[in-house]
Design a protein around this nucleic acid. Structure first.
Length: 580
RNA sequence: GCACCCAUAGCUCAGCUGGAUAGAGCGUUGCCCUCCGAAGGCAAAGGUCGCACGUUCGAAUCGUGCUGGGUGCGCCA
């Protein structure tokens, strides 16, 4: 289904045949032979660098190889022309039938068109969001949630078996702070003045937690010491926050397959076991760390800690797994958690972190490399900041949350579809501006609108054609005489459609879902362009007097719509049928 | 001080894991609706790809060293 892969294997077959005939020496490595669309369309439809890559190892002139290869390739009916150009490129022109057949393939496979088996069913775990269960999700989490979810969709489309996972940080001091904050709201629910001291969470969202605590415990916790209520209130509040977070995720259209709890790792021996595994590899020792250069912490004094020899796996310094008082650092349960993922049999791990966790990447990769004996690759995607804008100025603060803009604010103001698309219009490691005014604008300045408009146009054309008395069912369009799609402008759109399966593989290989968004923009642009050419050249209008010609043209339009829907599906954006 | 990320047109950004004359959108200039949705399209102008070496047949892309910006750097998570 991937045309580029098909042509590449055609090239490889030709090269192999040349070896059999003695035109090329045996034992050449073909892995660097690439088949790509040339940047400049004037160079043809496909280009291969085979002659340049093989010239040196074969001890032949690039031109000699290229000419022999061209002659071989010309025997295939799909190849209409093959010219040697530049330093040794072989430019191929494909027969129109090739492109026309792509349109048919898209119609037959529908939104399955472009699916790949590249992942070969390997198990990949995508861990994302993992927001602390101490409050509702805020803007900072939204981009990570969208990127993680879209990446998971993309990998599934490319043939991986994907697990979406959320790691609940419910084991540290921050959930005690949550408990104390909720307790003040509990007191408030009894008519007492809450004491929201410095360091507690001030947001309104804890008021319902206080009321729920009152409903459950009555006044039995009032005027009691922390040792009486802390654990219960902590569990109760954490549970309520997680319920809230699940709702937030649902509002964005994200659902997790697995929620893993940090707290659940304590007391089960899992942390000890993970650390012991490292110790058995001589990667754990007691030692002192050098003070950080530059700005030294004021209260620095050397302490002996339990350290992980992460430098053995490329980290800059060894990292503590225990604090000087002997308790675990945050890193220790995280090691155990990643060990758990390795033991569950994943072939690949992906973590989506905020950019402020950049300093954590090397040690986490070191831990996974050590614990999996370099079997399981860990890719960590760092998500850069989102800056919100409204009315030309930075948008800050939420009335509800007190200190931050919540996910709910964003989704209510922009809608889940718009939010998701915009969050995917930058690569993950570049900062992103999110302007509420621009993302809702109905113009070509707004990529969401532009792509949605293209899909609405497809539907509009299908409606008009039906009104004109044409049968535009997929079954009929699949059988259309696509040889009638002979105009260069139409072939150009078919070429773009042909890129889709390849783009899916490129995006999946690099774990970069944003590429899908950019591709859809280009495809939309092609459709808008073709549409407008119909203004000047009536022969390019989709609905013609001749029903067979109309069907072929509408088949092309429908194929564009299919790919847009497929791509939007990966991004998690609902295609609109009609603009209002 | 060290590590990681970023630097591409006036502005906002793509750029296929090394390919040919580096691409979009905005903005500027000039065009296109008696015609399937002009909420759109076409065209022009605009570049030492931060700088300097290096690897290569070939570098925006890979390596090294700089410059400028962001993030992080034991007893937070």
């Amino acid at each position: 289904m991937n045309l580029f892969a098909d042509i590449r294997s055609l090239v490889i077959d030709a090269l192999t045949a040349m070896q059999a005939e003695g035109a090329l020496p045996n034992g050449l490595d073909f892995s660097n032979v690439a088949v790509e669309p040339p940047r400049d369309a004037a160079h043809g439809d496909m280009a291969t660098n085979a002659a340049m890559v093989l010239a040196k190892p074969a001890a032949l002139q690039p031109r000699t190889i290229a000419e022999a290869l061209a002659a071989k390739l010309m025997a295939d009916p799909r190849i209409e022309g093959a010219d040697v150009a530049g330093p040794g490129f072989l430019n191929m022109r494909l027969s129109p039938a090739v492109w026309q057949s792509i349109v048919r393939a898209a119609l037959i496979h529908g939104t399955e068109f472009g699916k790949s088996d590249m992942g070969a069913g390997q198990k990949v775990n995508v861990e994302f969001v993992s927001a602390n269960p101490t409050g509702p999700m805020h803007v900072g989490h939204v981009r990570g949630a969208v990127v993680g979810d879209a990446l998971a969709n993309l990998l599934a489309f490319a043939g991986w078996s994907v697990t979406r996972e959320y790691y609940i940080n419910d084991g540290g001091a921050q959930v005690d702070v949550l408990a104390r904050s909720a307790y003040e709201r509990y007191r408030e629910a009894h008519g007492l003045e809450p004491e929201i001291r410095e360091g507690l969470y001030p947001g309104d969202y804890l008021i319902p937690v206080g009321e729920a605590l009152k409903a459950k415990y009555g006044d039995s916790l009032l005027d009691k010491g922390e040792q009486v209520w802390l654990a219960d209130v902590r569990d109760f509040a954490t549970e309520m926050m997680m319920a809230r977070i699940r709702e937030d995720l649902a509002a964005l259209g994200v659902s997790m397959d697995v929620y893993s709890s940090e707290k659940a790792l304590y007391g089960t021996g899992q942390i000890e076991a993970a650390i012991q595994t490292l110790r058995d590899m001589d990667l754990i020792y007691e030692g002192e760390l050098e003070p950080p250069k530059g700005k030294e912490p004021e209260d620095w004094e050397p302490r002996v800690q339990t350290l992980f020899r992460s430098t053995a796996y490329g980290d800059d310094v060894d990292r503590p797994v225990k604090k000087s008082d002997g308790s675990w650092t945050y890193f220790a349960p995280d090691i155990a958690y990643h060990y758990n993922k390795v033991q569950r049999g994943f072939d690949q791990l992906i973590d989506i972190f905020g950019a402020d966790h950049g300093g954590y990447v090397k040690r986490m990769k070191a831990a996974v490399a050590a614990l999996s004996q370099n079997r399981v690759p860990l890719d960590i995607k760092l998500i850069q900041l989102v800056k919100l804008w409204k009315n030309g100025e930075p948008f800050k603060m939420s009335k509800r949350a007190g200190t931050f803009v919540t996910l709910r604010d964003v989704v209510e103001m922009a809608g889940a579809d718009v939010t998701r698309f915009i969050m995917l219009t930058r690569k993950n490691d570049a900062a992103l501006d999110f302007d509420f005014d621009k993302v809702l604008e109905q113009s070509k300045d707004n990529p969401v609108f532009y792509v949605q408009y293209a899909n609405a146009r497809v539907n509009s054309i299908l409606r008009k054609a039906a009104e004109a008395g044409l049968d535009v069912s997929d079954a009929l369009l699949q059988g259309a005489d696509l040889a009638k799609l002979d105009h260069a402008a139409e072939i150009a759109v078919a070429k773009r459609i042909a890129e889709w399966p390849r783009l899916v593989e490129i995006a999946a290989r690099s774990n970069e879902p944003h590429r899908v968004a950019f591709y859809l923009y280009e495809l939309a642009s092609d459709l808008h362009g073709l549409w407008n050419r119909g203004n000047d050249d009536p022969s390019l209008r989709f609905i013609q007097d001749d029903p067979a010609t109309s069907q072929a043209k509408i088949a092309l339009v429908r194929a564009v719509g299919v790919v847009i829907c497929s791509g939007l599906g990966i991004l998690g954006v609902t295609p609109v049928e009609e603009m209002r």
